[in-house]
C-alpha cells in the first residue's frame, strides 16, 4: 500500500491513531497500529502518548491502557449522562464468580480441584460460566493423575476489570491480619509455660 508508506507528520500520525482507536472496540496494541501504518513501534508509542496527553483533560473521552493495548472510552464522571441516554444493562459478577476468577487470576495456571480446595465448595458451574463469558480459558492440562485441565485468565478478564496487565492486580495480603503484637502475645505465654 503506497499510502501507508508515506511519511507522517507528528500531528497527522496522532490523528491517524485517533481514528484507529475510535473505530476499534477492543483495546488496540501498539504493534497493531504500527503494522497498519507501516511504522516502527517506538514512533507510534511516542505519538500515542502525546495523543493521550491531549485527551488528559477537558474531554468527554479518554484513552485507557487496557489489556496490553489502548482503548478510547468515556470518562467515568459522565456515567450518569450515558446511563440517562442509553439505559445500558450491564451485569455484575456474582460473589462466587468473583471469588473464583480471583483465585484463577492469582494462581494461574490452576486446576478446578485446586480452586475447589481453596473455596471449600465445588466450582463446576462457576468455572463453566466464566469460560462461557471468555473471562477464563483452558491452558492445557496438568501433568498429574487424571491430567486435569488448567485454567488461566484472558484478555477479556483484563478488559472487564480495566487492568492493563496482570501485574496490576493488587497484592494478595491478609487485610484483616491482627496486629503482630496481638497475634504473638497469646502464643508466647503458653510457649513459656508448657504445662498449659
Amino acid at each position: 500500500m503506497e499510502e501507508s508508506t508515506q511519511v507522517f507528520s507528528v500531528d497527522k500520525l496522532k490523528a491517524a491513531i485517533e481514528c484507529m482507536l475510535f473505530v476499534t472496540p477492543q483495546p488496540l496494541a501498539i504493534k497493531q497500529i504500527a503494522e497498519a501504518l507501516n511504522l516502527d513501534e517506538a514512533t507510534v508509542e511516542k505519538a500515542l502518548q502525546e495523543l493521550r496527553m491531549d485527551y488528559a483533560e477537558g474531554r468527554g473521552l479518554q484513552i485507557l491502557h487496557i489489556a496490553g493495548g489502548y482503548q478510547m472510552c468515556t470518562r467515568p464522571e459522565f456515567v450518569d449522562c450515558i446511563t440517562a441516554l442509553l439505559k445500558p444493562t450491564r451485569t455484575r459478577m456474582s460473589r462466587a464468580a468473583l471469588e473464583t476468577v480471583a483465585i484463577i487470576a492469582y494462581r494461574q495456571p490452576i486446576t478446578q480441584p485446586e480452586i475447589d480446595a481453596i473455596r471449600g465448595v465445588n466450582s463446576d458451574g462457576v468455572v463453566k460460566t466464566l469460560t462461557e463469558r471468555n473471562l477464563i480459558t483452558q491452558m492445557g492440562r496438568k501433568d498429574s493423575p487424571g491430567r486435569p485441565i488448567l485454567y488461566g485468565t484472558t484478555e477479556e478478564f483484563l478488559n472487564h476489570f480495566g487492568l492493563s496487565d496482570l501485574s496490576r492486580l493488587p497484592e494478595l495480603t491478609d487485610v484483616t491480619l491482627p496486629e503482630p503484637d496481638q497475634a504473638v502475645l497469646p502464643m508466647e505465654q503458653p510457649a513459656e509455660a508448657p504445662e498449659k
Binding site: 468515556t74 456515567v79 445500558p88 455484575r92 468473583l98 471469588e99 476468577v101 492486580l169
Partner: peptide
C-alpha cells in the same frame, strides 16, 4: 482471595462507569 475478589469488585464498579 475473598479480599482480592472484593478488590476486583471495586475494579468492576469503576469499569462499569466507562463506556466504549
Amino acid at each position: 482471595f475473598k479480599n482480592a475478589s472484593e478488590s476486583l469488585k471495586e475494579f468492576e464498579e469503576e469499569r462499569r462507569k466507562v463506556f466504549w
